[in-house]
Each structure stands twice: as C-alpha cells, then as structure tokens.
Design a protein around this nucleic acid. Structure first.
Lengths: 342, 342
DNA sequence: ATGAAAGCGCTAACAC
DNA sequence: GTGTTAGCGCTTTCAT
C-alpha cells in the first residue's frame, strides 16, 4: 500500500505538504500542488480513511438506517442519498433493521456508535427512547425522513395535505362514496404516516359534509397483495360499493386495480383508484396518484447534513417543505351515472 | 467520547488489557475480563473503528457494489449480505453504480481504494479491465455474485440449467410453441445472464427436436412494462401465437401475464407463463417460476469472505453451487386442445 | 496474565 | 509556502 510518505518523496516535499495539496486545506503553491498530484496519481495513492479519520475526527461516512430495503420507496431514498453523498466525497453505510429485534439492538448499541459515521439519516423510523438516546449520545448530526422524531430535524411530506389532495381530486370528479385503504399499525414503520393520511382523507370528506363511514375503510400492509385483499373486501360489499378507492400507497392502489379487474369492474368506469407515491409502476398501470419524490428527499437530507458538517460551505435549500404533486392518469374519472345502483 | 483509557482506569488495568479483554485476543483472566466488560458497559464504551482499523489494518467493513438498487433481486441480495455481515460484526458500505459513468468512475478510482473496506462483493457486474485492475490492486478478497468476473471467485446460479428447467417444464406439459422474452444487452448488468438463459431455452427445445424460431423471441429490459410490451408483440402475432411464454425474469413474466389479460387471453388457459426468480409478487400472480434465493446468495458471499478474512475460523459451505428450484403455481398448464388454431 | 511502549498513516499546530 | 513534530485511539510486540 503506497502511503503519503512515498508520495512526499517522489514529489520532493514533506508529507504535510502532500496532505495539504491533496485535501485543499492550507496554502500550497500551484507548482507544488501539481507536482504532488502527479506523484499521487503515478503511485496510485489514496488516503487511508482510517488514518485520516483518526487524525481529523471525521470519517467522511454517513450511516443510513432504514426499516426495509426491498420496498420501492426506501431503495429510492437511498439511491438519492447515495448519489448526493458520493458527490460530496462521502460513503454511505447501510443499516437495515428489517431483520428484527436483535439486529435492531445491535445496530444501535454497537454499530452506529463505533465512530464510524459522521452523521446519520434515519428513514421512516419510529425510535424508542433509548434508541434516540443512543443517537443523541453520539453528538452527531441526525436528520430524519418521513417520521417525526422528537428532537431530530426531520424531512417530511405533509401526509395530511397529501391525502387531502388525493381525496379532493376524487371529490371534485363527483365521487361521494370514497373508500380508503390505510395502513394497519402492525408494520414497523413510523405509525403516524397511515394515521395522518387517514386524517387527511377524513378531513376532505368532512369539509364537504360527507360523513365518515367506517365500512369504507380497510387496513392493509402497504403491499400489492395487501391492497388487493383489502380492495376485494371493499368492492365486494353488496350494499355499498364505493365508486372510488383511495389507497395510502401506490402499491396498495395497484392491488386495488387488480382486484377491481378480477371482480369484473372497470377502472375508472366502475371504480376510480387513487394512490400516493408515484411508484415506478404507477405509470404502467395508469394510476392517478400524488407523487412524492423519494430520491430528492434522500438528496435533500444529505444537503442538510453537509450544511451542518461543513458550516458555511453550502447554500443548500434548507427548509424547503417536501414537494408533492398531483398526477392524474387514467385510473380516475367521474363516477358513471347511477353506477352505485347497477 | 469515552476512550479505552477511561475504561482502563475504571477497571484498574492497562489499556492493553482492555483491548485484549474486549477483543478476545490474547489471554485475560476471567476476573479481569468481566471487570473490564462491566466498566466498558458502564461507560458506554465502543471502540473507534478508525483507531482500531489503523492499528490492525482491518476495517470490519465490506463494500458492496451493485448496478441497481431499486430492483427486487439486488435489494434482496443486499438484505441477505447485510444480515450476515452484521452477525459477523461487519458493516456494509454501499456503492450503487446506477448513477452512470462519472459516478462509476469515482467509485472505482477513489472510494473502494480508500482502504475503507476489507473486502468487496460485486453483484451482477460486468467490469472493465481497468476496474478489475483497481480491485485487484487493493489486494483484498473479492467475491462476485451472478456475473462471472475473470479471476474473481463468483457465486452464480447455472443460468443455462435454470432456463432449461423452466423450458422443460413447459415442454413436459405438452407445449411445443414456446416463446422466450430475454434481455436486451443494453441493460448495464452482466450480459452473460440473458445470453445464458436464452441458451438454456434453446437447448431444451433442441433436445426434443423443436427448431428455434427467431420470431418467438423478444427482448426486454427485465422490467414489468418491458415484459408487457414484449409479450404484446409475441401474443399479438396473428400467424403463430405461442401457447407458452418463458420470460427470463419474473418481472417480465408478470408483465406477460398482464399483457395476456389485456388481450383477453386466459392464463394458463390460452397461454402458459413462466418466469425466473420467485419475485416477492410471484405468488400473488400465481406465477410458475424457477426460484433463486438472492438473500441466501448474499449471505453465502459473506461467508466466503469471512473464510478468507479469518482463515480457519469458519467452516462455511464453501463451494455449494447456488440452489434453484422449480416452483409450479397456476400460470402454467397443458396447452388447451387445438389452442393454436382458435 | 498483565503492563510499557512503539507504532499504524495521517493531519494540524507551530515554526520558519 | 513549506517543513517539523506531536498526537488521533487503538493494538501488539516485548518484557515481566
């Protein structure tokens, strides 16, 4: 392994100068600078992050903690974060909590604390008090995405508003019998999210004087099959089949579309379907949805961290509220005349 | 940050003893050992991976390089690898190449080489000669998953056999007109994979004397929409509609099922559909498939690395060929009598 | 079984 | 603008 010494020798300078020339800290004449860089290149020299980290106290590495990896939303956030980190010269180390209790404990007790990371990004996590305490003990910047963590700067779309917007789209088309597929609280993610979306849905209905009907609610697990099952229940109800279904995620909405098809119901002819996310398959299924932008969220989280880590160096858009956007495709339409009596 | 010194003081021993007691290297009396551990626990001490890494030359960290993150297969492999690494006390740092050329270069030129990792796992990657050279220069264990990398120990299912098995399942049901949806080579993953699967498909047909018909092949990008489009082409052919479609991935097979439905064709009544992967949605769609087990593949890659990193310590199943398994669900059946003349 | 001390490879004062 | 040098926090000989 070629070290800083060999570069120094080859360039005919001291190691300190090599360090300065390569890191950009301190003043080095342009001439030496280029000599050093050439030498480094020639030798294929790369700093040892361990040594550098030990000396500076900074690791150029951030930890990302997620509850799942195999869901579109999470992997998209990570993709965005990873790109942004890379561009700032940082690495991303991944802590996936989906393994369950033990894994979760060991992540919090050992891994995050190893001084391996300069900061952490926590995605859609509901943390226990002691987990939060662990994090705070580290005294490192933390930013959350999606779940309001007490005491942590968190990036969140306004789930209430998003759900309300989705519901209002349906209302504006003339639907009055709108079902909602929301989360059950069993899923190990921030449990405010399903609640908030349900609140937004109900608020939209109440605003136009439509009473909330508990029979028009079904819980599912944010997956396609879960949405399918829930939608079958809702759409199979012989007494009051809704003319529209608003699912709290696109995956559940896609399940709903498939359920409708299997029941012989046309979308949007017999039933309109609305989701949230703008999942990669939303376009394919013609799903109307409220888009959120997970990759952008990941990037933004990184910008926030960079600002804390390198004060003054960045002029990132600090407190931009997270963007969302109604996207109308072909799964929503006016309710068919007298559709509910057919 | 509490350091090893404070632990030493509290336990009334030297830092050397603390190090030994905590790492398990060297001999420490049981009494001291427990005193040290208690002290460490009380102070919430965790080793600095930087300092430890600098002293030992080992980072307890492995780099995982992937071409995509938002596909089921890749995130599943990572999930498996992450769990296994965690259980060995290792961290996982993620290098996602999906960003494109520049990102890719910087990963290879700067990041992997920072001595930040003890080993690397490369998933389904087709590497350039210089990228491979970078990796070898590091002189660290590498294991590949899925793409045969010259000179690298690689874990691979036998794609030819897998595809052959899938095709034989269709043949054994009595199908003789079997289309194949394979990869186009544009996708930035190991391009042997689509080729090998196609080879297996053709071998199965030739073995029973069925000529290969280029009109029964369509290329797609391993996605659901891609499979859908390809299937529409194949199944829409007025002169020779196949009675079965074998797609090189479950996502494309799911696209095929949806395409068939949209054409009014029953699955498996009018057309049987077969995939590869056992994607999380395969069960939901009743898709017959040849399962591979990405999480297990990730775990196995880790075991291999551990063996190299800690020789003699592990008795992992070294050269187990990767497991695959035919799973018959409801998307395949005998061809309907005279289906092709309808 | 334990302690003293010499680094691991780099950075950051501090001199010049 | 550049060199000298003292650590960063741990591990690991080498003694004892």
């Amino acid at each position: 392994m070629t070290g800083i010494n060999e570069v120094a020798v080859l360039a005919g300078v001291s190691t300190a100068t090599v360090s300065r020339a390569l890191s950009g800290n301190g003043h080095v004449s342009l001439a030496t600078q280029s000599r050093v860089k050439a030498a480094a290149l020639e030798l294929g020299y790369v700093v040892s992050s361990n040594a550098s980290g030990l000396a500076t106290g900074r690791t150029k590495n951030v930890g990302v903690v997620i509850p799942f990896l195999t869901r579109w939303y999470y992997s998209s956030v990570i993709e965005g974060a990873e790109q942004a980190l890379l561009s700032h010269g940082y690495d991303l180390t991944l802590y996936n909590l989906s393994g369950g209790g033990d894994e979760r404990r060991s992540v919090f007790e050992h891994f995050l604390l190893r001084k391996r990371v300069d900061a952490v990004i926590a995605i859609s996590l509901e943390l226990t008090a002691s987990e939060l305490a662990s994090l705070f003990e580290m005294n490192k910047p933390i930013v959350g995405i999606g779940g309001p963590l007490p005491g942590v700067r968190t990036l969140s779309i306004d789930d209430v508003k998003v759900a309300r917007l989705a519901t209002e789209h349906l209302l504006s088309l003339g639907h009055t019998s709108i079902a909602h597929i929301g989360g059950d609280t069993s899923v190990e993610l921030d449990f405010h999210l399903p609640t908030n979306r349900r609140v937004g849905y109900e608020a939209a209905l109440e605003a136009v004087g439509i009473p909330i009907d508990p029979e028009l609610f079904a819980a599912a697990d944010f997956s396609v099959p879960g949405g399918y099952r829930a939608a079958k229940q809702l759409l199979g109800n012989p007494r009051k089949r809704p003319t529209a279904v608003f699912a709290a995620s696109d995956e559940m909405a896609i399940g709903t579309i498939l359920a409708a098809r299997d029941l012989g119901l046309a979308v949007p002819g017999d039933v309109s379907v609305m989701g949230i996310d703008d999942h990669e398959l939303a376009g394919f299924f013609g799903l109307s949805t409220v888009a959120q932008f997970p990759a952008a969220q990941g990037r933004m989280a990184v910008e926030l961290l960079m600002e804390e880590l390198h004060p003054g160096r960045h002029v990132a858009a600090a407190n931009t509220p997270l963007h969302f956007e109604l996207i109308v495709r072909s799964s929503t339409a006016r309710p068919r005349y007298s559709a509910s009596e057919r």
